[in-house]
Amino acid sequence: MKTTLAHDERIANMVFASVYPHYINKVEKKGRTKDDLHKVITWLTGFDDCKLQELIDEKVTFKTFFAVAKLNPNAHLIKGVICGYKIEEIETPLTKKVRYLDKLVDELAKGKAMEKILRK
């Protein structure tokens, strides 16, 4: 599936802080913790807890969030379908990065082992 320009722009302009509480709720409902979520975010982006909180407080968009992130070199190993899109077929780099994060959160919520989520 190919994403549309409107879809990509909507994702780029979403404020990370508006989505973050949904990530927390999703993983906590399934018995995982905020610390688990932060491990996943840190693995993908390189952000420590302080930097993550700073970006949340600044209400940065996903565009800015991923512009300052240092993407994990193994992020390309994240595969599968999320929100109806096959990750490996997404052509827009930013949209792909956001879907990487969505997929990791999804795997965490589904109870997948942390070693597998972090592609070790």
Rank of each mutant, 00 (worst) to 15 (best):
L5T: 15
F47G: 08
L77F: 09
I41N: 05
G80C: 13
L94M: 08
F62A: 04
A69P: 08
K70S: 09
L55P: 07
I11S: 03
K29T: 05
V60M: 01
L104E: 06
F66T: 11
D36A: 08
R99T: 02
D106W: 05
K96D: 11
A12Y: 04
L108V: 08
F62V: 00
M14S: 05
G31N: 09
S18Q: 06
T61Y: 08
V98M: 12
L5F: 07
E91D: 15
C83E: 11
N25P: 03
E58C: 05
L101C: 12
K39C: 07
K51T: 14
K26E: 13
A6G: 00
L52E: 06
K34T: 05
G31E: 01
L101G: 07
V98I: 10
F66G: 05
G31T: 10
M14I: 06
K29D: 14
C50D: 15
D48H: 07
I11V: 14
I90Y: 06
H7N: 10
V27N: 01
I24Y: 02
A109I: 02
N72C: 10
E9H: 12
E91S: 15
D49V: 14
K97V: 01
L5V: 15
W43K: 04
S18F: 01
V60Y: 02
D8K: 00
